[in-house]
């Protein structure tokens, strides 16, 4: 039967979805951090929300969600300079978001590649930001011990900070990507690409 349809490609609900998903991404990042600290884990777990939102809503919304998390976290903790770590989260959102848009966040291999790229970005940008905010050390005890060890064998602070961040970030961002992937696999089809009735790419 020939039926009428409307062009909802302009996505009237897209603005509403964005307004809802960004805070959810922020909250998931924050709760991830709380879970990590309540379980006494040497990782941050504060990127899961960024990755989930980026995979569902696209890279820019994911990036905004990640950045807003760092701003909100800085306001709640009073540590305003730490908002600079938003640069790390923005990169995480863009990497995963663009991969998901191209259909590259569906298999185990995709998750592994996304984890490596996000970890490298976070290590590379986290080190200079930590230099500006904390003088070189990290908020994570495990990373600090690695920095100290590397310095004691002759590395300068800059490269020690970068290299020390790689294992922590691989673990942390790897877990974030895996969890986001598991959640996406469990979601119903229409939720996997919430574009407010906009046709998926």
């Amino acid at each position: 039967m020939a039926m009428n349809s409307v062009d909802t490609s302009k996505g009237r609900l897209r603005g509403t979805y964005i307004a809802i998903m960004i805070p959810i991404g922020v909250a998931i990042n924050y709760i991830g951090g709380l879970i990590a600290s309540s379980l006494g884990l040497p990782i941050y777990l504060d990127s899961i929300g960024t990755v989930v939102v980026a995979a569902i809503m696209g890279p820019w919304v994911g990036a905004i969600s990640g950045a807003l998390f760092n701003v909100v976290s800085a306001l709640i903790g009073g540590n305003i300079p730490s908002a600079l770590f938003a640069i790390c989260n923005i990169g995480s959102g863009l990497i995963v978001g663009f991969m998901a848009q191209k259909g590259l966040f569906k298999t185990w291999w995709h998750v592994v590649i996304a984890s490596i790229l996000v970890a490298l970005w976070n290590a590379a940008t986290g080190a200079p930001i930590a230099m500006v905010v904390y003088g070189g050390i990290d908020g994570n005890v495990g990373t600090n011990l690695m920095i100290a060890t590397m310095q004691s064998i002759g590395r300068d602070l800059g490269s020690a900070a970068f290299i020390a961040r790689i294992p922590t970030n691989l673990l942390d961002k790897g877990i974030a990507c895996v969890i986001a992937w598991i959640v996406l696999m469990k979601l119903p089809e229409n939720m996997k690409s919430l574009n407010g009735a906009k046709k998926a790419a």
Binding site: M3, S5, V6, L13, A197
Partner: peptide
């Protein structure tokens, strides 16, 4: 009209 679909 908001979430899409077809009707008669």
């Amino acid at each position: 009209f908001v979430t899409g679909g077809a009707w008669d």
